[in-house]
Design a protein around this nucleic acid. Structure first.
Length: 904
RNA sequence: GGGCGGGUAGCUCAGUGGGGAGAGCAUCGGCCUUACAAGCCGGGGGUCACAGGUUCGAGCCCUGUUCCGCCUACCA
C-alpha cells in the first residue's frame, strides 16, 4: 500500500483487513488514562456473547465508531470501552440446545458440569461477535475488553447486591411474578412481551346451588377455572347485586365458591361477571388478598396441571387441558358461547412461550427511590436524552416502575450472594461465603441456588467496566462517560437502570448524553427478524459491497426520530460512492506521480488570493473549492456535534461528488495535464490538499478507503490518517466573492449544456457560443474564464461581448443567465419549432413565478408587516424576472420571425 | 384505552428559528470525452394526506378528520 498511482479497481477486502490489523498493531485505539487530552468516553452496549452481528449492531456500532474517530481527530483522549454480556437465559438456552442435540439435559449433567460447559462454549464461540465488530471497523480499545462474568465485574455485582441489601433496597419476598415454564425461571415484568393473539372469549355458566338461576362468566383461559375460588361482580351492577354473598357451583369441579362484589370488575366487559383464579392471575391475586379468598394452584412451574386440578386434568399440559375442559363444559352444557377475541398475551422475551403468573419466593430491588433519583438527574439536565422526545417515555416508565424481580432460576449467571442456615432459617448476605451460620456454631450454610438477572450486571456496566469497586485511573478519567449510543428498545431494560445504579454507587450519572437512534427495518417497514426472513445480514453486505459502503449507507439513513428502512440496493448504491472517491484519488495521484515540488497550500493571509504568490495567483476555482471546504468542515462539526448523522453523510457526499469532482477537478484538468495557463504545481497542490481534507472529514464514517488513499498521498509519509489534524474551518479562507463568481460561471456553463441537451446537439459536436453581458464585472469574469467555459461547454468559438456592441446571433438558441444572454449558435441544425416551444415553456415557468412576486408586492399588508430584507429580496426578484421575461419574449419573437422567413 | 411518530416526486426519505419545494434511487433523452459506463451531460415528474384556523406569508404553528406504524395498559 505504497505511494504512487492507484490500481484501477478498489479492492476493499484486502484493504480493510490490512488497515484494521495495522491499527490494532499500532495500538491506535488504546486510550491513555494518564493522558493530558480531554477525555471522551463511550461504553459499548455489550452484545450478547451468543450474538451474531445483525444490522442493528452494525448501525449502533457504526455511529459509535463515527463519534470516537471524530473525537480522536479533534484531539480528545478517546476511550471506547468494549465487552460482551453473559446473557443468562439466552446463553443457557443455547447451551441447553446443544446438550439436547447430544441427548443430554442440563439436570442430567448437573449444575457444575453445565456451567463448565457454558464456559467452554464461551471460550469457543464468545469471540465471534467481537471479530465481527472488528470487521465493521470498530475502534474499540480491545485492551480493555470485559465480560460481565469476569472476576472483577462479578465482584462489582456482589458488592452492589450486598450494599443494596444492607440499605434495605434488596429484599426477598413471596409475590406474584411472571414465570416462564419453558425457561423455568422468574422474569421481570419488562422481560415479558405482550403479543397480540387471535383467541376466543369463552362464556361459562356457574349455576346457583338452589338450581334457580346462574351466573355466566367470560374468560380467555377456561382451564384456570379449576382453580377458581370466587366469582366477582361490580357492586354497582344491579343485575348481580343480589348475588353478592351467595355461592355458585363451580362446574365440573362441583365446589361451591362465593360471589363477591368489587369495583374492579368492569360491568361492560363480557357478562360483567368475573371468575377469580387467585393463583394464576395478577388481578385475581389482588382480589384474593382483599377478600380473603382461598388460593388453589392448578398449574405448576412446567405448565403442567397439578394434582389440585383433579382428574382427569392433573398431569396434562395447560393447553391440552384447555381443550379438554372446553370439551367437557360443552358436553355438560355449561359452555354458553364462544366468540373470537383478540387480546394480548404475555410471552417470554427469550423463548416466546406464554408466561404464567405465579406466586413465588424471589429477590427484588426496591426501585422507588432509585427511580426518583434517575428521573431527577434527567430533569436537572445532568444527562440529556437526544432526541428529547424519549425523555417523556423515560419519565413515564420510571414513574410507574414496580419493584424489580432480580432472581432467576437458572444456572448461568452471578450466583446470589445469600446463604441460608437450615437450622435457624437465617439469611446471610455477604461478599464471601460464610463458613458457618453466625447464630448456630458449626451449622453449614447453603447458598441460594438462584442467579441474578443479567440486566443487573449490565446496569453496572459504565463503572464496572472501568474497574469499580476499585478506585482506578480509568474511573477517574473516563467516568461519567460522554455519551451512550443505543436504540430505544433497551432504553428501559438498560439505560434507565444504568442511571439508577450509576447515581446510587458513583453518586454521578453514568453518561452526559444518551443518543437514541433508530431501529433498522426492512424496505416494508417491518422489524427485521429471522422468522420473517427479511434480515439483511451485515456480514454479507460487507462481503459484497465493502464495510465503508455499508457504514455509509447506515449513516446516510440515520436521521433522528425515524426508523431506517434499509434495502440492499441502497448499500450497493453507496458502493458507487466509494468507487467515486477512489477514482477521484486516482486522477489526482496520477498527476502527482511525477510531481516533484512539495504539495503545499499557500499560507492563509487575510485575503490569500490577492497576494502574488511568487507568480502564482490563486485562481477562482481554487479560491472557490477552498472556501467551500471550510463551510463543509464547519457543517461536519455541526452535524456530528448534534448527532445529525445523515446530514454529515450527505454534506460530504454532495461536496466530494458534485463540487470537487464534477466542477473543480473538471476545471483544473487542463492544469493537471499541463495545458492550462495556471499549469502545474498550484492546481496539483490545491487538488491534493482538498482531497486530503475530504479524506479526514470522511474518515469517521469510511475509515478504510480514507486510510488507504491517505497513505498514497505523497506528503503523509506513513502517518496514519487517524492522527491527522482535523481540518477545522478557517474563516479567512471563506470567500463569498469567489463563491458568487463561481456560481455565475457555472450557471453560464449549465445554460450552454442545457441548450445543447434540449436541442439534441451531440456531445461530440463543438458549438459556437456568444455571451452578451450588461455588467462589466460579468464581462470580465467570463473573459478571464473563457477557456473554462469553452472546455466544459464544448465550445468551438466563444464570443464574449458587451450587450449592444455586437448583434445577437440569428440562428441560435438562447438563455438568460443573471444579466447575461447566452446564445448557442445552431446555424444549420436549429429547429425553430423545438426552440420556440422550449422558450415558451421557460416563459410559462417564469411568468408563474412573476405572478407570485407581483401578488406579494401589491399586497399592502405584506409591504407593511414583512421584514425589510424580505421585501427587498422580493423586489429584486421581481425586477430580475421582468428582465428575463422581456429578453425571452424578444427572443421568441425573433424565433417566430425566423421561422416565417425560412418558411417563406 | 392511553401515548408517540409518520403521511412531501414513481420509490426511500431530507427540509433542525414560518419568507423562492430538495436529495438519492428509479425514469426518459444524449454520450465508451485518456479518474470513474460502479461513469458523464441534460430533461421530465409534487393541490407537501384532508378540512379549517392563526399570519402580510404555512410543508413548517394551532384545531379537527383520516390512514399507517410503533410503544404502553390489570376489560378477564
Amino acid at each position: 500500500m505504497s505511494e504512487g498511482a492507484l490500481p484501477k479497481g478498489y479492492e476493499f477486502a484486502e484493504v480493510e483487513s490490512h488497515w484494521y490489523n495495522h491499527w490494532e498493531k499500532e495500538s491506535l485505539f488504546r486510550a491513555d488514562a494518564m493522558g493530558q487530552k480531554l477525555p471522551y468516553s463511550i461504553v459499548i452496549p455489550p452484545p450478547n456473547v451468543t450474538g451474531q452481528l445483525h444490522i442493528g449492531h452494525a448501525l449502533n456500532n457504526t455511529l459509535q465508531d463515527i463519534l470516537c474517530r471524530y473525537k480522536r481527530l479533534r484531539g480528545f483522549e478517546v476511550l471506547w470501552a468494549p465487552g460482551t454480556d453473559h446473557a443468562g437465559i439466552a446463553t443457557q438456552n443455547v447451551v441447553e440446545r446443544q446438550l439436547g442435540a447430544e441427548g443430554l439435559t442440563r439436570h442430567g449433567v448437573g449444575r457444575e458440569a453445565f456451567v463448565q460447559r457454558v464456559w467452554e462454549w464461551k471460550a469457543r464461540y464468545g469471540g465471534i461477535i467481537i471479530n465481527q465488530l472488528k470487521r465493521l471497523g470498530a475502534s474499540c480499545d480491545w485492551s480493555r475488553e470485559r465480560f460481565t462474568m469476569d472476576e472483577g465485574l462479578s465482584t462489582a455485582v456482589r458488592q452492589v447486591f450486598v450494599s443494596l441489601y444492607e440499605a434495605g433496597l434488596i429484599y426477598r419476598g413471596r409475590r406474584m411474578i411472571n414465570w416462564c415454564p419453558r425457561c423455568m425461571t422468574a422474569l421481570a415484568n419488562i422481560e415479558v412481551d405482550g403479543e397480540e393473539l387471535d383467541s376466543f372469549l369463552y362464556y361459562i355458566r356457574y349455576p346457583l346451588p338452589s338450581g334457580k338461576g346462574s351466573l355466566v362468566v367470560a374468560t380467555t383461559r377456561p382451564e384456570t377455572m379449576l382453580g377458581d375460588t370466587a366469582v366477582a361482580v361490580n357492586p354497582e351492577d344491579h343485575r348481580y347485586r343480589a348475588y353478592i354473598g351467595q355461592k355458585v357451583i363451580l362446574p365440573i369441579v362441583g365446589r361451591n365458591i362465593p360471589v363477591i362484589g368489587d369495583p374492579y370488575v368492569e360491568r361492560e366487559f363480557g357478562t360483567g361477571a368475573l371468575k377469580v383464579t387467585p393463583a394464576h392471575d395478577f388481578n385475581d391475586f389482588e382480589l384474593c388478598g382483599k377478600h380473603h379468598l382461598e388460593l388453589v394452584q392448578v398449574i405448576d412451574e412446567r405448565g403442567i396441571m397439578t394434582e389440585q386440578a383433579g382428574r382427569p386434568y392433573a398431569g396434562m399440559d395447560r393447553f391440552a387441558c384447555r381443550k379438554q375442559i372446553l370439551k367437557d363444559l360443552n358436553k355438560s352444557g355449561h359452555l354458553v358461547k364462544t366468540e373470537p377475541y383478540k387480546h394480548r398475551v404475555g410471552h417470554c422475551y427469550r423463548c416466546h412461550n406464554v408466561v404464567e403468573p405465579m406466586l413465588s419466593l424471589q429477590w427484588f430491588v426496591a426501585t422507588r427511590g432509585l427511580a426518583q433519583a434517575a428521573i431527577e438527574a434527567v430533569k436537572e439536565g445532568k444527562t440529556r436524552i437526544i432526541p428529547a422526545k424519549w425523555e417523556k417515555d423515560y419519565f413515564n416508565w420510571l414513574e410507574n416502575l414496580e419493584d424489580w424481580c432480580i432472581s432467576r432460576q437458572i444456572w448461568w449467571g452471578h450466583r446470589i450472594p445469600a446463604w441460608y442456615c437450615p437450622k435457624c432459617n437465617d439469611v446471610i448476605v455477604s461478599m464471601e461465603a460464610p463458613k458457618e451460620c453466625p447464630n448456630c456454631p458449626g451449622a453449614a450454610v447453603e447458598q441460594d441456588p438462584d442467579v441474578l438477572d443479567t440486566w443487573l450486571s449490565s446496569s453496572l456496566w459504565p463503572f464496572s467496566i472501568l474497574g469499580w469497586p476499585d478506585k482506578t485511573l480509568d474511573l477517574e478519567k473516563f467516568y461519567p462517560t460522554s455519551v451512550l449510543v443505543t436504540a430505544f428498545d433497551i432504553l428501559f431494560f438498560w439505560v434507565a437502570r444504568m442511571m439508577m445504579m450509576g447515581l446510587e454507587f458513583m453518586k454521578e450519572v453514568p453518561f452526559r448524553q444518551v443518543y437514541v437512534h433508530a431501529l433498522v427495518r426492512d424496505a416494508e417497514g417491518q422489524k427485521m427478524s429471522k422468522s420473517r426472513g427479511n434480515v439483511i445480514d451485515p456480514l454479507l453486505m460487507m462481503d459484497k459491497y465493502g464495510t465503508d459502503a455499508l457504514r455509509f449507507a447506515l449513516t446516510a439513513f440515520a436521521a433522528q426520530g425515524r426508523d431506517i428502512r434499509l434495502s440492499e440496493e441502497r448499500i450497493e448504491g453507496y458502493k458507487h460512492f466509494v468507487n467515486k472517491i477512489w477514482n477521484a484519488a486516482r486522477l489526482v495521484l496520477m498527476n502527482l506521480a511525477d510531481f516533484e515540488g512539495p504539495v503545499r497550500l499557500p499560507e492563509a493571509p487575510a485575503k490569500p488570493w490577492e497576494k502574488d504568490r511568487g507568480g502564482e495567483v490563486l485562481g477562482l476555482a481554487h479560491r472557490w473549492i477552498l472556501s467551500r471546504l471550510q463551510r463543509v468542515a464547519a457543517e461536519t462539526v455541526e452535524s456530528l456535534d448534534n448527532y445529525y448523522f445523515n446530514q454529515y453523510a450527505q454534506v460530504l457526499y454532495q461536496f466530494l461528488w458534485h463540487e470537487y469532482c464534477d466542477w473543480y477537478l473538471e476545471i483544473i484538468k487542463p492544469d493537471l495535464y499541463g495545458r492550462g495557463a495556471d499549469a502545474g504545481d498550484l492546481a496539483r497542490s490545491v487538488a491534493a490538499v482538498v482531497l486530503e481534507k475530504i479524506l479526514i472529514l470522511l474518515h469517521p464514517v469510511m475509515p478504510f478507503i480514507t486510510e488507504e488513499v491517505w497513505h498514497r498521498l505523497p506528503h503523509t509519509s506513513g502517518m496514519t490518517i487517524m492522527k491527522a489534524a482535523f481540518p477545522e474551518a478557517q474563516a479567512e479562507w471563506i470567500d463569498p466573492e469567489a463563491e458568487e463568481q463561481m456560481e455565475t460561471l457555472m450557471a453560464v456553463i449549465v445554460a450552454i449544456r442545457n441548450i445543447r441537451g434540449e436541442m439534441n446537439v451531440s456531445p461530440a459536436l463543438k458549438v459556437e457560443v456568444a455571451c452578451l453581458c450588461v455588467q462589466d464585472a460579468e464581462l470580465d469574469l467570463l473573459k478571464v474564464h473563457q477557456s473554462t467555459i469553452a472546455d466544459l461547454g464544448k465550445v468551438s468559438k466563444l464570443t464574449i461581448a458587451k450587450a449592444g456592441k455586437i448583434a445577437k446571433p440569428r440562428y441560435a438558441a438562447g438563455a438568460v443567465v443573471r444579466n447575461m444572454e447566452v446564445f448557442v449558435v445552431l446555424k444549420d441544425i436549429l429547429d425553430f419549432d423545438s426552440e420556440s416551444s422550449r422558450l415558451q415553456k421557460e416563459l410559462a415557468k417564469l411568468e408563474k413565478e412573476l405572478g407570485l412576486t407581483h401578488r406579494k408586492l401589491s399586497n399592502d399588508d405584506f409591504l407593511q408587516k414583512a421584514p425589510h430584507e424580505v421585501i427587498e429580496k422580493e423586489r429584486e426578484k421581481n425586477v430580475r424576472l421582468g428582465e428575463k421575461i422581456d429578453k425571452l419574449n424578444r427572443r421568441l419573437e425573433i424565433m417566430n420571425g425566423l421561422r416565417e422567413s425560412r418558411a417563406g
